[in-house]
Design a protein around this nucleic acid. Structure first.
Lengths: 234, 234
DNA sequence: CCCTGTATACTTACATACAAGTGGTAATGA
DNA sequence: TCATTACCACTTGTATGTAAGTATACAGGG
């Protein structure tokens, strides 16, 4: 529990700041899966009352980032393979549908913007900066959804991602991971340039499934981060 | 504002009851688009304090069912054609992806269950009961997602639906609407029976787009329910 | 008549107090 | 030594109080 020291609160309403702060802390692994978090302690650390804390936790619970057990405590959810698969399915469905539209709508400016993003990614690959690459990767996928005219799809996909983001963050330090990603981004861009929805969808689908391949290794490395014996309850 | 009289609170935690109650009231149109709702008034009507009201509104704001303006008021969002299109895109992408999987996985029991649902729908069509049909329609689509092994997709789709549900509810009283729906359900089921992902996807996509066709007529009938001059703000 | 400034009655955002329930722990008895 | 029981510290859920901001109605001056 080192939120207040390591992470400054961004501008916005208090509860919004708390929400963003906690969400990022969970995805970044600063709050570990299974860890119990206390409303009172959070309120003290962040120097706010319990009310905005509770509002933030309400949202995080809705995203399955935390699990609230009445009169017992609030816990950071463990990563469930089933939940990861669910998130993958949602993201794949939404982004692949978006890229098909994008392939038909992308103009020269759109293509140029994507090329610029990939160039920046290549720079980051050279310096092996996982943190910045993750941001640029998100930008690339968001840009595709934006080109399709359905930026909302990216919002939903990112929302549903949940556990997926945590897995990705954990799985970054793998050999050739970043360079492989860039190659696949190129494949998607080529398909967009040709205006081929089928090729673009296939390339993106293949790309999106790369992340999943790392899950088994992660389970071996951090078995306590995963929780698969019990299904998600309503 | 006739919540307390027309709608009983379901079991569950207080804030959860308030949330469900308000959500259904908005979708059903009991709370009209653009209407201002007061935390104090809601708390009084539902005989609870403002705290659970605020938690429910936090969730509803996240789903774009309400818009909260600080120090001014909370308003039921108007229906935006862009938001409806977004919801349609999300639903279409998720359910079409699910039905492809379902076409490959459905066994005799699954097909029989869907047949049973359609039979019940035919009964409801005979009595022209829009309310019950809406429930059975949801059950049908949820069942398809369930068969695909990705029930989560239905949860996300339903969440994203938002304004879409409100449009559907408004658009029900149209001639031959229900019988057309059943015919299209049959088409989807036939494709599933044949185990053809392509046909199932095509049939479902066609079916899902039926709802949208009613939007223009609705805008003419209830122009004050729609809000399209300003884009949704972050 | 019109414009302007002010008081007021609302609103949400946040802080705090109280209630109800849980699990661990230590004391007590066999 | 072990089982049982009562207690206590802690949790979240709910209620209420305080602060700050907005729109509106109204009075007064031009």
């Amino acid at each position: 529990m080192r939120i207040s020291h390591s992470r400054r609160l961004e501008p916005g309403s208090t509860s919004r700041r708390v929400y963003s702060s906690l969400r990022e802390a969970i995805i970044a692994g600063e709050l570990e899966p299974g860890q119990r978090i206390s409303e009172n302690e959070l309120a003290e650390r962040l120097s706010v009352s319990r009310t905005p804390i509770r509002e933030a936790l309400t949202l995080l619970r809705d995203e399955r980032f935390v699990q609230v057990v009445p009169q017992l405590g609030t816990f950071v959810t463990r990563i469930s393979s089933a939940a990861v698969a669910d998130a993958q399915f949602v993201r794949e469905a939404l982004e692949c549908a978006a890229v098909r539209v994008a392939a038909e709508r992308a103009d020269r400016n759109d293509i140029a913007a994507l090329e610029g993003l990939i160039r920046r990614q290549e720079e980051v690959v050279a310096e092996t900066n996982y943190e910045r690459f993750a941001l640029l990767d998100d930008e690339f996928h968001a840009a595709i959804c934006e080109i399709s005219g359905r930026g909302f799809a990216w919002e939903v996909a990112q929302r549903a991602k949940g556990h997926l983001s945590r897995v990705r963050r954990l799985s970054l330090p793998q050999p050739n991971y970043l360079s492989t990603m860039v190659v696949e981004h190129h494949a998607v861009l080529d398909a967009l340039r040709r205006g081929s929805p089928d090729d673009a969808e296939a390339a993106l689908r293949h790309h999106l499934r790369m992340v999943l391949s790392a899950v088994p290794a992660l389970r071996d490395e951090h078995p306590d981060y995963f929780e698969d014996e019990e299904e998600r309850s309503a």
